[in-house]
């Protein structure tokens, strides 16, 4: 328990100490929120879909979470390059606990980031229909963050250095984000797109945010939570399996 705590604490301290990183990763969501939110606002309204900012904000929260958590998971690559990973790997702590401690730490960081984006979107004009919904939303944020931090860990155990990083961003995170329904409603999509969105775990996370924050959902909260939990468990097991095989 203590070991999981200290690994968690390390992630949090590193996050709080790197202000540039914290601010840097808020810029992208703000840009999306303002340019798309206001840019498409009137078109969206004319189509009879209501306020686009309200629709978009949960998607942007999802975006900040997926980026932050996959990167947190992938921090293992830095630890390997700077040598710190060795220190953790020779310690008499089970690989599973190391992986869990790191993952919970990374997920906490991503949840904080998601919460900050929530606040910012409120300032930008987002009106959740019930402000108290933020409490269950934080729990779902954490679940989504766990899922994607575990994914990041999994990817990191395959990569030896940061060379593959761009590849991962362009071929994995970007598609996961754009196809998740973060930017557009999942209703009435072409069949292919609707099918792909169904395979994207982020779709369910963002859907759950929408249900809780603006009372609109596509899959339904129960489905969302079941899918998210199953995928999270699967990624955690896979992540710890691959983490166990890391050699330095």
């Amino acid at each position: 328990m203590n070991t999981i705590y200290i690994l968690w604490l390390r992630q949090i301290k590193r996050y709080l100490r790197s202000k540039p990183r914290m601010i840097g990763s808020l810029v992208q969501p703000i840009l999306f929120l303002l340019s798309l939110g206001y840019g498409f606002g009137s078109v969206f309204q004319r189509a009879g879909e209501g306020s686009y900012i309200n629709f978009l904000a949960p998607g942007i929260i999802g975006m900040s979470i997926i980026f932050t958590s996959v990167f947190s998971g992938m921090e293992i690559i830095w630890d390997r390059q700077f040598g710190f990973l060795k220190e953790t790997l020779v310690a008499p702590v089970s690989r599973f606990n190391i992986m869990i401690g790191r993952t919970i730490g990374g997920a906490t960081v991503a949840t904080i980031q998601g919460f900050l984006v929530f606040i910012i979107s409120m300032i930008a004009g987002f009106h959740p229909y019930n402000i108290w919904a933020i409490i269950p939303v934080i729990l779902v944020m954490f679940l989504v963050a766990l899922l994607f931090t575990a994914l990041g860990t999994m990817i990191a155990s395959f990569l030896n250095d940061m060379q593959g990083f761009q590849l991962i961003v362009n071929f994995l995170i970007m598609p996961l984000f754009f196809l998740s329904g973060a930017l557009f409603p999942l209703e009435g999509l072409p069949q292919a797109l609707s099918f792909v969105a169904r395979l994207d775990p982020l779709s369910y996370g963002i859907d759950a945010f929408r249900v809780l924050l603006i009372g609109l959902g596509h899959y339904g909260l129960i489905t969302d939570l079941i899918v998210l939990s199953i995928v999270t468990l699967a990624f955690l097991s896979l992540g710890s399996y691959f983490f166990r095989r890391i050699q330095v």
């Binding site: 390390r10 301290k13 590193r14 100490r17 040598g83 710190f84 060795k86 220190e87």
Partner: peptide
């Protein structure tokens, strides 16, 4: 059963 001091760096610079 063991402790080790590595040849190359293994500290966390941010701590």
């Amino acid at each position: 059963s063991f402790g080790i001091v590595f040849q190359d760096p293994s500290l966390d610079d941010e701590l």
